[in-house]
Write a protein that binds this DNA or RNA. Structure first.
Lengths: 113, 113
DNA sequence: CTTATATATTAACTTTCACTAATATATCAT
DNA sequence: ATGATATATTAGTGAAAGTTAATATATAAG
């Protein structure tokens, strides 16, 4: 079965849509790290982190390289870091807009959900 | 229970991580549309589209306004459109990189997943 | 060669999500 | 008021995704 472009793109973005994966990405954003360093950073569990790393790698967001018994993970390229920055900026902006709306009953921008 | 910032951010991004929602966003990117216009555009079903619209609205990605019996949906602001553009750019770039890797066994950038 | 360490994988379980069908609500036209 | 149209909501179902615990694999160190 052939995947539509939208499906593949959705899968790529889904890589960014989990709190643990966001933390992993933040953790390796500026410097490659080994799995155990990441596990320590996030105070997470090894199996769980490994699986999220596999997910991120499968989405094309991160890459890995082996050095002896260690495996270093890093962002695939600089554009991923840029995308993360922009996501953050837009997200914060939306948060502020929504918060502002909560004091204004006339606007319809704060659905329960 | 208090949500961490990462959880909220993950939820925001999850808005973009579904093929139907990506299509909806593309459909209203340049011009607000009513639900039925979107349903026609995507050849989708009304209930399904309505639910995805509620999701996008709940994520803060789109807003709505009512005009008679019609409800128009549009992107929350211009920055969302920008973010969409950048996601697309980075996605295409990753796709190309990964495709290129498939011809190079030495690189570890094409996990099955 | 044996043990320890680093990482990946598997299996079981639970939760979340997307889809459909049916029904409800609201507005418009007659 | 009645019927038609536009949209939302609810309930049910199946599939996907996240978590944990246990196990497997690979490399390094003694």
């Amino acid at each position: 079965m052939v995947k539509t472009s939208y499906e593949v793109k959705a899968k790529f973005i889904r890589g960014f849509s989990d709190k643990t994966r966001l933390q992993i990405l933040e953790s390796i954003k500026n410097k490659e790290k080994t799995v155990s360093q990441i596990v320590d950073d996030l105070n997470g569990n090894q199996s769980n982190i490994s699986q999220h790393l596999a997910c991120l790698k499968g989405c094309g967001i991160i890459v890995s390289r082996q050095e002896g018994k260690y495996i270093y993970y890093s962002l695939r390229n600089a554009e991923i870091a840029q995308l993360m920055d922009i996501m953050e900026t837009v997200f914060v902006q939306v948060e502020e807009e929504v918060a502002a709306c909560e004091r204004n009953d006339e606007l319809d921008c704060c659905p329960k959900h």
